[in-house]
Write a protein that binds this DNA or RNA. Structure first.
Length: 268
DNA sequence: AGGTCGACCTGGCAGC
DNA sequence: TGCTGCCAGGTCGACC
């Protein structure tokens, strides 16, 4: 579910809600979501204080007072809700010493939670590309990655070894703002388009963070609220509706097995 | 080697 | 009402 702006919003909320709190009790209702043993999960969390919270790609990392990290990948339907009521999708209940509670909810159970000593133990972090807001992500880097390659530009944006954190919604929105057809092969991306891709990527993601993310179906922030970026979305999930630029209908196609939405007139 | 596809799961919704 | 089929924001391993 959540892409970079949503995870960033959750991270920011959790900093205000649970940073420096100490785990008192962990109730794992569905150990399917764990990627380490239940015993280890509880042993390394109980009594530990959350020292810091960071986001890398679409993953959230909480550093603990014992030097280990609680790594949460929300995938499609995972939610971290502070102070909500458990429901049938609640997989883990974290209780703090001050009585506050953090829930991990996950309808589809794709999400993963684990405790690690060293982040390099997780393959995802080893192959992940640069953060969009990092200086390593820039027009030159984009050109470099496009050179002599044969794949549609939409697929490149979704490739997390190219850039971290962009998912299906924002890939569609970035390409719309660039006026680039999602089927365009990256080898045919020109210098000015690489610059445009860079600028619109930052613009869309920053705007989405400012609006606290997009809620299509399941996304909720750490307080259980929906994101507000939906009303800024111009193409995603708008098949058949009028393009905000030229009024012609938005088209839906499948690329790499996933829906792509775009305006065939505005995106060349 | 680079790129794509299906599987992993559950549930909502449209159509019959 | 109840069934079927399709769809969903991510990621990985198998395959071409």
């Amino acid at each position: 579910m959540p892409e970079l702006p949503e995870v960033e919003t959750i991270k920011h909320d959790l900093e205000n809600l649970i940073l420096h709190k100490t785990f008192r009790h962990i109730e794992v209702r569905d150990s399917f979501v764990l990627r380490c043993s239940l015993k280890k999960f509880i042993r390394h969390l109980k009594g530990q204080t959350i020292k810091g919270i960071i986001r890398r790609g679409k993953a959230l990392l909480m550093s603990l007072s014992n030097g280990r990290h609680l790594v949460v990948q929300l995938m499609m339907t995972g939610q971290l809700i502070a102070d909500g009521k458990p429901d049938k999708h609640t997989r883990v209940v974290f209780e703090f010493t001050d009585g506050d509670v953090l829930l991990y909810n996950d309808q589809r159970r794709f999400g993963q939670l684990r405790i690690v000593k060293d982040l390099r133990q997780i393959k995802y972090f080893n192959i992940l590309g640069p953060e969009p807001f990092d200086q390593n992500f820039n027009p030159d880097y984009i050109r470099q990655c496009c050179r002599d390659r044969r794949r549609p530009v939409k697929n490149l944006l979704l490739d997390h070894t190219f850039v971290a954190g962009i998912g299906n919604i924002y890939a569609c929105e970035i390409l719309f703002r660039c006026g680039i057809n999602p089927k365009r092969l990256v080898g045919r991306i020109k210098a000015h388009q690489a610059k445009d891709l860079y600028e619109k990527t930052l613009e869309v993601l920053q705007e989405a963070i400012d609006y606290r993310g997009s809620s299509m179906r399941n996304y909720r922030d750490a307080s259980g609220q929906k994101g507000e970026f939906n009303r800024r979305i111009r193409v995603y999930a708008r098949e058949g509706r009028a393009c905000s630029g030229c009024q012609s209908p938005i088209k839906r196609i499948i690329q790499a097995g996933r829906s792509t939405f775009f305006c065939p007139k505005c995106q060349k």
